[in-house]
Design a binder for these strands. Structure first.
Lengths: 224, 224
DNA sequence: TCATGTCCTAATGTTGACATTCGGACATGG
DNA sequence: CCATGTCCGAATGTCAACATTAGGACATGA
């Protein structure tokens, strides 16, 4: 009996490995938006067969990071204003439901974990703040809310936009994130306060506005 | 130049074919909830290779109809009260967004198409009404709303719950659908009226209530 | 009787070879 | 010069054989 919670046996198949590798390559900018992902090339560089690569790409398509057409290959999604509107519009609806559901389910312990995440953002901001690091905490915060909500279908839908969101935000962070970091701590702290003891309708409203603020901020920087 | 809109070239690969066949088999009750779907058996009965079956099953998993674990095979989802709560909770959030977005986008012609669908429900109900037929019209109505909204990510999320919803409703219809048919026409007609010229917030509220009414009605019949 | 350790089998996971399709380059005709 | 038809290459779609794994059956020992 190991005391550790669980190392989470990482046996999930080569397809997951391949998907993880390609996903990180996309985030690292190795495959810019619109570029083609050729199965044979990926299979060669990852050292696995085309079948596994193909299955991994299917997973990434599920996350909305790539798009594939019959006999025409798969390409990384573009980042147009329309795409941003779609992703953030959907995310607002999902966050609204996640927040109100989490408000009804959250234990004191879980609320404490959310506090800890906001504190981590705050200290990250105080020290030599790293944009991607702040982004990761932001995502982790919302992951936690979806986790508390406990609706597996909802979490699944969230995962289908999360990667795209991360890709969009990375682009903004690369251009400077003063505007982002100025609000991120306060907005999240307010969300926790409302989750703890806020009127349901106010929380729902604020959750939507939180997304909308991020959307506007991103669109302002989009034309690059 | 053919006058017809487009026969929509049905070349989408064997994986799609396999997915369609298995999906219909599940709906037809050939694979009850919880039953295992063995790749070799399916490949044999469908006359395609295991690779195609595997890819088709991945599509069905995307729709939430089946669930697969590593090296443990894939099984048809169960229909517990918790599952119903999850699906309908998410659907309410999606419908809320779809309705308000469609309200802003809808052309007169598109609103007319919605009217036509409600009329079709009405005449279906007047004649010798068939439950599954009524269900299909219900789904088509909401498909149209998502289509008008024009958010591809939102439509994708809708497709991820639509099949599950259909499976749940089929179960209810099999036990009699008087309660369902009594409300279906009026509720949909009211939605069209609100889409045409209703306050945004009232429409959002009604869209959620429409889903909630279906949820309660289903839960009442669930213990079978 | 119960707990434990070891096979064994039936299924999935993985692979490399073969078949099919798309889109463009080129030639041809108006 | 533009429209049309044909061909070709490169990539994806499909397949059947091989490797790996999970879970149960069985035997063993306390």
């Amino acid at each position: 009996m190991t005391g550790a919670p669980l190392p989470k046996a990482p046996r999930r198949g080569l397809a997951h490995e391949a998907a993880t590798l390609v996903r990180e390559a996309i985030f690292a900018g190795h495959f810019p938006p619109g570029s083609a992902l050729r199965e044979v090339d990926l299979a060669a560089s990852l050292g696995v067969s085309r079948g596994s690569v193909r299955e991994g790409l299917a997973l990434l398509e599920r996350e909305g990071l790539i798009h594939s057409a019959w006999h025409r290959g798969t390409t990384v999604i573009e980042v147009t204003a329309e795409d941003v509107e779609e992703v953030y519009g959907l995310r607002a609806a999902l966050d609204r439901l996640a927040s109100t559901t989490a408000r009804a389910n959250a234990s004191t312990h879980e609320l404490g974990e959310l506090d800890a995440l906001v504190d981590a953002m705050s200290s990250e901001l105080a020290g030599q703040s790293s944009g991607p690091q702040l982004l990761a905490l932001d995502i982790a915060f919302h992951d936690k809310i979806y986790d508390i909500a406990g609706n597996r279908r909802l979490t699944s839908a969230w995962h289908a936009v999360r990667s795209q969101l991360y890709l969009f935000q990375l682009r903004r962070v690369a251009l400077g994130y003063e505007h982002y970091s100025a609000r991120v701590v306060d907005e999240h702290r307010e969300l926790v306060a409302l989750l703890r003891s806020g009127p349901r309708e106010v929380l729902a409203q604020r959750a939507e506005e939180h997304v909308d603020s991020a959307r506007r901020s991103l669109l302002a920087h989009l034309p690059s």
